[in-house]
């Protein structure tokens, strides 16, 4: 019976206009390391989209700068026979997130569509989730953000293009993290757009080499499912069984 219900969706392709009660999507991201050039456009796009502060040199030295999405460089071998891989690491949006398990205040929780969200109003700032996160995806807000970081003189004065998120809600003393740009996804669903095709997280949208794909993993026609099925794939720290929804394709 269920296959009969799902059949129209298969024919329609990746349409997010289907009724919400029918089936929850499972948002996932595929990062093709073979295509990734390590340009870090995703990091910059993330910082711009979510107004993540740049962090002063002092903060970077003390390792207090906030990263929602980061790039790590991993090398194998020694010069001249050396291979370097640059790996973008957003929040892995685990299916079994340790941060949600340890959060005392229920401030971080997993939405039904699988996105792990941090609620700043509930967060008490105990930093237990940062200790428990196997991917270093969480950052603590060590200070009040400067006014300058809100008002962004470098951007054109077009408030209509930006929603309320996330400008006024950044709070000192709470933990924050990547949200898979859920504000874009939610707005896209409301407007009936195709998620993964028309609507993308900022990092995926900014990738110049199209190394990242985003979409519903349960939908076989979504870009993410197609990319996932194309080659061998792996997840980071699979031995911990957190079951991340950010999937990597090896070089």
């Amino acid at each position: 019976m269920e296959s009969a219900v799902r059949l129209p969706i298969l024919i329609q392709g990746s349409k997010s206009t289907r009724p919400e009660e029918e089936k929850m999507p499972k948002w996932a991201m595929v990062i093709d390391l073979d295509k990734c050039t390590g340009c870090q456009a995703c990091i910059v796009a993330c910082k711009a989209e979510n107004n993540v502060p740049h962090g002063s040199p002092e903060e970077q030295r003390r390792r207090r700068d906030i990263y929602w999405n980061k790039i790590i460089a991993v090398t194998r071998g020694r010069y001249p026979k050396v291979q370097t891989e640059l790996i973008p690491m957003p929040c892995m949006q685990c299916d079994h997130p340790p941060c949600v398990t340890v959060c005392p205040a229920r401030a971080t929780y997993r939405r039904e569509d699988g996105i792990v969200i941090q609620n700043y109003r509930r967060c008490i700032g105990c930093k237990y989730c940062m200790v428990a996160c196997p991917y270093g995806a969480r950052s603590f807000n060590f200070r009040k953000q400067d006014e300058m970081e809100y008002h962004r003189p470098d951007l054109p004065p077009d408030p209509g293009s930006r929603e309320v998120w996330p400008f006024p809600v950044r709070t000192q003393g709470v933990v924050e993290k990547c949200t898979f740009c859920f504000h874009r996804i939610d707005r896209g669903i409301r407007e009936g757009k195709r998620i993964g095709v028309e609507v993308l997280p900022a990092c995926v949208e900014a990738c110049p080499s199209c190394a990242m794909a985003f979409g519903d993993l349960d939908d076989p026609q979504s870009p993410v499912s197609i990319a996932f099925g194309s080659r061998t794939a792996f997840r980071l720290r699979e031995e911990l069984k957190t079951n991340p929804k950010v999937i990597y394709l090896p070089r």
Partner: peptide
């Protein structure tokens, strides 16, 4: 934390 097999360069390693 070793996110990825190999030698992690820079501050993350």
């Amino acid at each position: 934390q070793h996110f990825f097999p190999g030698f992690m360069e820079g501050i993350w390693g």
